[in-house]
Design a protein around this nucleic acid. Structure first.
Lengths: 177, 177
DNA sequence: ATTTGCATGTAATCTGTTACATGATTCA
DNA sequence: TGAATCATGTAACAGATTACATGCAAAT
């Protein structure tokens, strides 16, 4: 389905970047719903260059080192926009090890069941706090035409996801016995 | 991480099954948080047999066809229990194409933005109804020592996930403009 | 002097999907 | 007679992670 292709094109559509910059974007802005290591990004950029979806200019970075500054081409923009407008196919299951373990929790001795669920509550609470902290950087809701609008929506979605997880886990704990 | 191994062991720990039965379980009971096709299940069963985690007896099925009825071994049970008790490593991002598209939604013309989000609301509403229907099969909360307890918890979790998604999408729509 | 960050790549491996392949039985 | 279900497998490919590999600059 080439999703990585479109994630990269979408980012390069916002601004010119190096492979390294893209990697940083996956670690920060996209981390709540997509990920990619540099070992996947660099080969994909090579492929996209061959396809004519991106191009680069060799530049010297601040320090004087070599770097490749990538930008999106017309073909790249066309491909990206048609992907964005296309219907999203029914998502395959989001695989979730925690839920798998909870599914099998009746195999565990009673004390451990509660312990397992509480450990998860702790994790998600920490994550929620971190996300709420990020949200404070927005003094108001960004305009829906700006690039930050997407950031705002997915951050809101991530917060709601964590809140839901905590609520579910606590409800589950209350059902033990 | 061999998660498929433990999913299969967990199911075989509940009862003896054929590869085909396991496939059906992935399609029904586990479908909200794990998936596996038969082309992955059969080779994994072969590997688990070699490892000594499972064993099988060749049997004739109802109709007279050959089938392999798998059961878990002591080693398999030990492996499964130690996996279940171990700490779950920090989950890698659950990849989500819908969220990725929403992240880039400011690239779309205004009318299409709303359309995209509403299409998602429709999808998740249908899914929610289906799950709520399944929940009605439980006349009460199963005992936390029974196998159905896990079913009940993950179904509840899936319902809450869909409710959260709908709420998030509607909130997002209200923020357009 | 050593670690961290910038910067780029390849190789080996693992995980998962789609397609190929077969064959009997049951139901419409 | 043809489609659906039961039943089992392999091969090719796609997607993603871990490890291998290099090198300069800046900060500690």
């Amino acid at each position: 389905m080439r999703t990585l292709k479109y994630a990269i094109l979408g980012l390069l559509n916002q601004k010119k970047m190096t492979g390294y910059d893209l990697m940083k974007q996956f670690e920060s802005a996209l981390c709540e719903f997509w990920s990619a290591k540099h070992s996947q990004i660099y080969p994909e950029l090579k492929k996209l260059t061959e396809e004519g979806c991106v191009a680069y200019r060799q530049e010297a970075s601040d320090n004087g080192l070599e770097k490749k500054l990538y930008h999106i081409t017309e073909k790249g923009r066309t491909d990206f926009m048609s992907w964005l407008s296309s219907e999203t196919p029914a998502q395959p299951t989001p695989k979730d090890i925690s839920r798998l373990k909870i599914f099998f929790c009746s195999c565990l001795p009673k004390e451990e069941r509660k312990f397992m669920l509480e450990e998860q509550v702790y994790r998600h609470t920490a994550r929620l706090k971190h996300l709420q902290n990020n949200q404070q950087k927005f003094s108001q809701v960004p305009d829906s035409d700006s690039n930050e609008f997407g950031d705002y929506l997915v951050l809101m979605g991530a917060i709601m996801r964590e809140e839901m997880m905590i609520e579910w886990l606590k409800k589950s704990i209350s059902l033990l016995n």
